[in-house]
């Protein structure tokens, strides 16, 4: 499906993209950014779903179940944590005091 040099090109371009995107982030947003990028690798959920879907033996099912549960935790936890942090920068600063 994705082979050899095509894969390498995807890898190389994505790596530069990640580097460029984050290099202009102000320090103030570093923690939310880390949390946000943490959410994005929650995409591992997609792989976990595919793997558990195709699981056959019981051992495969147990491992697949662990993969899906952990991946869902990564995605949901990462999302909620990021949103909570970013809320502080947006909703009326004054009234919180």
């Amino acid at each position: 499906m994705i082979e050899g040099f095509t894969a390498l090109y995807i890898f190389m371009l994505s790596a530069f993209t990640g580097y460029e995107v984050i290099s202009r982030v102000p320090v103030i947003l570093h923690t939310p950014m880390m949390s946000g990028s943490n959410f994005i690798h929650g995409i591992v959920l997609v792989g976990a779903i595919v793997v558990l879907g195709g699981a056959e033996s019981n051992l495969e099912k147990v491992l697949g179940f662990i993969a899906v549960a952990l991946a869902a935790g990564n995605a949901v936890g990462g999302y909620v944590a990021t949103v909570r942090m970013l809320e502080m920068f947006t909703t009326g600063n004054k009234k919180a005091a």
């Binding site: 499906m1 994705i2 894969a7 995807i10 890898f11 994505s14 790596a15 530069f16 993209t17 990640g18 580097y19 995107v21 984050i22 290099s23 570093h30 950014m33 880390m34 990028s37 943490n38 994005i40 690798h41 995409i43 591992v44 997609v46 792989g47 595919v50 793997v51």
Partner: peptide, 28 residues
């Protein structure tokens, strides 16, 4: 790790998202 498993499963979304986070995280 997510990017590598993306290669194994042939899933471009995992490769791209994983690699972007990998390089952004390294810079951070």
């Amino acid at each position: 790790a997510v990017a590598f498993e993306g290669f194994v499963l042939g899933n471009a979304a995992m490769i791209i998202a994983g690699t972007v986070v990998g390089s952004a995280g390294t810079l951070l």
